[in-house]
Write a protein that binds this DNA or RNA. Structure first.
Length: 485
RNA sequence: GGCGACAUAGCCAAGUGGUAAGGCAGAGGACUGCAAAUCCUCCAUUCCCCGGUUCAAAUCCGGGUGUCGCCUCCA
């Protein structure tokens, strides 16, 4: 398995710290707003990474934090006249709603800054004690010149960084690039007691303290968006390695940006789209599918048209799963002549290709191409079937279904019900019972009209239902209906 | 100013030396009462431009052009 490591800027063979196990830490959101699509990309991507490791048989420990104390939260709370900690609690709840809709599994732990003050303070103390950090009037700064490797992740030297620096001059700092690991608090701000007086952690230190707590030193994978490379991850490395004397992380993975009209989607540009607003217009499967349809390190341009095109593609895959389900519901015949031989041959090849694609730095775009090929092979096979199903064919089709399920286990596009089947219909409302009965009544009436070749009535019903989002398909086996994807 | 990434059909997109995956859209055909769905066929002699290396380059090297990003909060 090969992964692209930002630290070395090339693909490397993945070798876990401990065989058969993988520890992953992903930087989660600072909770002062609903998440936007740019935030959703790393969530969905790293959820897929985690799923793939599990699929490969690894024991995965997956940690994603919430930064729930921070200047941005404090400012936002002040604007709204709310308590900062209350504000972040609210957005953490909302985060889980959006992430859950996108079928992102909960991490094994979701540590919060507020729950880890002792660990953070202890780490700051260690940095002060060994001379990596210094105290000024209740603030504690990390001294970048004391850490020889500073800049190794972002590939820049201190002088490079200084040359273009737009940092405000703070005469209390020994170097303009020194950064706060502990900040003294102003009256009214959330504060915790520390050896340096009341204050709160600087940005960066929480991820170091929490990842080390749950994963230990030299853990396997640390992930996040490319914009975290500098300064966030660079500073995490400096702090962590200065404190522990050991390599912080083995592999650094960073996802590219979502763009809008080719420009980065970001809060400061104001061109962001909230996940919940997008979900009001598109099914969550489509959004997840769209996010995975491009390699994670490439930029992904968002607009409604592109999302709609992704949705139409996804419809093909849904249809194929539906056709397979219907075929498997047929009665078994004693026929010994199998007609699905080609599918049989294709399955193993496609499965191997899928794994190879994912093994190559999580190439979900290629992997999705393979899912489409499986769909075509399965559709072709299903088309050759008669009224009943030979045993051999049943075996092949159910194997094909299993492969679809395995692919979905990794990509996570469709939610899965309690018996492990993919949920491909977006129906299942509470009152769907009545709705379905009404629908089947209407379909019966239409069938009677069709028998009488009353095409006027028949088409009027079909067109009318289409306007309501119900698509009817007349097949030799009867009428099939589905909700418009 | 410093550093870096990318440039493949109408659109999206994979492909790091061996002769252009896949999807959307489009055209034709099979099937259908008509549709829809599905299947089949077609849709880049060519991968931003110019040089070079090589038997062979979208893929490597040099130069150019363009777009984007980081250096400040951001996923």
């Amino acid at each position: 398995m090969e992964v692209y490591n930002t630290m070395t800027r090339r693909k490397e063979t993945f070798q876990p710290r401990e065989p058969g196990k993988v520890g992953i830490y992903v930087c989660g959101p600072t909770t002062y707003n609903y998440i936007h699509l740019g935030n959703a990309r790393p969530l969905v991507f790293f959820d897929t990474v985690r799923r793939y490791f599990a699929y490969k048989g690894y024991e995965v420990l997956y940690i994603q934090n919430f930064t729930d104390v921070d200047d941005k939260i404090i400012n936002r709370a002040a604007q709204e006249g709310k308590d900062p900690l209350e504000l972040s609690r609210t957005y953490i709840d909302e985060y889980f709603k959006d992430a859950g809709a996108l079928n992102v599994r909960r991490a094994d732990q979701h540590p919060k800054v507020t729950g880890h003050m002792p660990e953070i303070i202890k780490m700051v103390e260690a940095l002060v004690e060994n001379g990596s950090a210094y105290v000024v009037e209740g603030d504690v700064y990390f001294e970048v010149r004391k850490f020889a490797g500073y800049g190794k992740l972002s590939g820049r030297t201190l002088d490079d960084l200084l040359a273009g620096a737009r940092v405000e001059v703070d005469t209390r700092k020994r170097d303009p690039l020194d950064f706060a690991v502990w900040k003294s608090s102003k009256p009214g701000e959330p504060a915790w007691d520390s050896p340096w007086g009341p204050g709160r952690p600087g940005w960066h230190i929480e991820c170091s303290a929490m990842s080390l707590k749950y994963l230990g030193t030299s853990f396997d994978i640390h992930g996040g968006g490319f914009d975290l490379v500098f300064p966030h991850h660079e500073n995490e490395i400096a702090q962590s390695e200065a404190a522990t004397g050991e390599t912080f992380v083995r592999y650094w993975l960073h996802n590219g940006f979502i763009t809008v009209k080719e420009e980065k989607m970001s809060k400061s540009l104001g061109n962001f789209f909230l996940v919940r607003d997008i979900l009001a217009k598109f099914p969550p499967e489509t959004v997840r599918f769209f996010l995975l349809s491009t390699h994670y390190r490439s930029p992904l341009d968002f607009d409604d048209e592109k999302l709609a095109a992704a949705g139409r593609g996804l419809e093909r895959i849904k249809t194929s799963v539906r056709l397979l389900t219907e075929a498997l519901a047929k009665k078994t015949s004693e026929d010994t002549v199998a007609v699905t031989g080609d599918l049989q041959t294709a399955i193993d090849t496609l499965k191997a290709s899928f794994d190879a694609a994912m093994d190559d730095d999580f190439n979900t775009a290629l992997a999705i191409g393979i899912v489409f090929e499986l769909a075509r092979e399965a559709n072709t096979a299903v088309q050759r079937l008669g009224e009943t199903l030979a045993r051999a064919d049943r075996e092949v089709l159910s194997k094909a279904m299993d492969v679809f399920k395995a692919f979905n286990e990794v990509l996570g596009v469709f939610k899965v019900d309690s018996s492990g089947n993919m949920i491909i219909e977006s129906v299942s409302e509470e009152n769907s019972g009545l709705a379905e009965k009404l629908l089947s009544l209407i379909i019966d009436v239409r069938q009677e009209a069709r028998k009488k070749k009353d095409w006027g009535t028949s088409d009027r019903i079909r067109d009318g239902l289409k306007e309501l989002g119900i698509v009817l398909e007349d097949t030799p086996q009867g009428v099939r209906w589905k909700k418009q994807g």
